[in-house]
Design a protein around this nucleic acid. Structure first.
Length: 204
DNA sequence: AGTGGGATCTGT
DNA sequence: CAGATCCCACTA
């Protein structure tokens, strides 16, 4: 909408996942369809996975599934979990380093047509969770390994100046804590979310 | 070739 | 807290 939105470029993501994950909060994830439909959401919760991390899918080395995590930054890493939900990650760091940021929750800018009749309370939490956001944005394994960038089915936009100002003035605060749903690496504080946000995956 | 577990979510 | 449901990595 605003004239000076900047699309996130690959080099900005070519840093350790633990640096990228908090920086992605407030950025916009955009889903574009061939017919022109667009779904946009602000990232409100992320988790970092990377080297030396037993919970990281790349921990045991390069496998058919994890190979995209070793690829260049800004590649999408989508996988199926529990037989029914997809999770969306953005690959980070330098090529050869197996790492990514899991996008765990979005605050949608607008509710897609198909959910228009849903109660407002539910609409707020439509993308509150990694599986839910993939369902809403129709992200599945066909998008695995694709570049995330301009003209692609998925791309990212940097924080608006207003959002950055709110961070700088502490009107919005970023909370750092441990990750969810894993059994290994449970003590690593590699999850970040926006405080005072009702669209995060778990409410206090 | 078989198997056990998994970065989830919903309803009871 | 059980159930849905399937891919993947590991074992043999």
């Amino acid at each position: 909408m605003s004239a000076n939105t900047q699309i996130v470029e690959s080099f900005w993501l070519a840093r350790p996942s633990t640096s990228v994950a908090p920086d992605l909060l407030g950025c916009t994830l955009v889903r574009q369809f061939p017919d022109g439909e667009v779904i946009r959401g602000t990232i409100v919760e992320t988790e970092a996975y990377g080297p030396g991390d037993p919970a990281c899918h790349a921990y045991t080395g390069l496998t058919p599934r994890s190979k995209v995590m070793f690829g260049p930054a800004s590649t999408s890493y989508v996988y199926l979990i529990y037989g029914m939900y997809h999770c969306f990650n953005v690959v980070t760091d330098l090529e050869g380093v197996g790492s990514a940021v899991l996008v765990r929750a979005l605050q949608l800018e607008a509710v897609p047509e198909e959910f228009a009749g849903m109660p407002a309370v539910k609409q707020v939490r439509l993308a509150a969770g990694p599986g839910k956001l993939c369902k809403v944005m129709k992200i599945d394994k066909t998008l695995n390994g694709l570049p995330v960038g301009a003209g692609q089915p998925l791309y990212l936009e940097h924080r608006t100046e207003e959002f950055q100002g709110a961070i700088d003035s502490c009107a919005i605060n970023i909370v750092q804590t441990t990750r969810i749903g894993i059994t290994k690496g449970i003590d690593l504080p590699w999850r970040w979310y926006l405080g005072n946000c009702s669209a995060v995956s778990k409410l206090l």
